[in-house]
């Protein structure tokens, strides 16, 4: 392995990792917001909107991110809407992630017993207060493992961003292979970069799950 090559081009990877992390985080935050919004709509059974939410969830979960990105990047300009690579990446990731996050939140809401709502009502709490103090905290603690798994999954999905001409980690690796034929070194750095980003996230997620699961609620 050519170590000189690795040290020469490592900065390129660091820069690309920044792009991956920045756009990935933004997409994930938006996905959480979209998912939470959809799950609220479904929980409160808001007429009409709940069907739109279900349709969206099925659409986002049953189409590949690559196809979604192609639609945004190559399809939309035909309709007169041109988006930059960055915007496409963030919109695509939050579109995909929103569906997964909504399902994670939904499973949490479903796990909260119906009696909890009635106990809250009988104390005179409003439905907003019941959501905020009683239902949501319990639902969230159930959802956390699924939400964390989604975060890791979505960070990995960012590797298709290169398909819409975005200089992320995958893009840099492909570029170096194309230019210098240093396949081994380029791929080694790519794997290392993803591991450096994702391992801490996974460890953090596991710690968070343990805390919520075992430290809380008197277990």
């Amino acid at each position: 392995m050519d170590t000189a090559f690795i040290s020469e081009y490592a900065p390129l990877y660091i820069e690309a990792a920044g792009v991956t992390l920045w756009l990935g985080s933004l997409g994930i935050l938006l996905a959480l917001a979209v998912g939470l919004f959809c799950s609220f709509i479904q929980y409160f059974r808001i007429p009409v909107l709940r069907y739109i939410a279900s349709a969206y969830i099925e659409l986002s979960r049953n189409t590949p991110l690559l196809v979604q990105l192609f639609f945004l990047y190559f399809g939309l300009p035909k309709l007169g809407i041109s988006l930059s690579s960055e915007v496409c990446a963030v919109v695509g990731l939050s579109f995909l992630g929103g569906g997964y996050m909504a399902e994670a939140f939904r499973s949490g809401f479903q796990a909260v017993e119906k009696g909890q709502m009635e106990a809250g009502l009988s104390l005179g709490l409003s439905s907003g207060q019941i959501m905020r103090y009683i239902v949501f905290p319990q639902a969230l603690s159930v959802s956390v493992p699924a939400l964390c798994a989604n975060v890791v999954f979505l960070l990995k999905e960012t590797s298709v961003f290169s398909a819409v001409a975005l200089a992320d980690l995958m893009y840099v690796a492909k570029d170096l292979i194309g230019l210098y034929y240093k396949t081994e070194e380029a791929l080694f750095m790519l794997v290392a970069a993803y591991l450096i980003i994702l391992l801490p996230v996974s460890v953090l997620a596991a710690a968070l799950e343990r805390r919520l699961r075992y430290a809380g609620f008197g277990n």
Binding site: Q116, E118, S122
Partner: peptide, 13 residues
């Protein structure tokens, strides 16, 4: 009106 239920629905969290 205070109410106590059969299934002791305290808030577990």
């Amino acid at each position: 009106v205070g109410m106590v239920f059969q299934n002791y629905d305290l808030f577990p969290h």
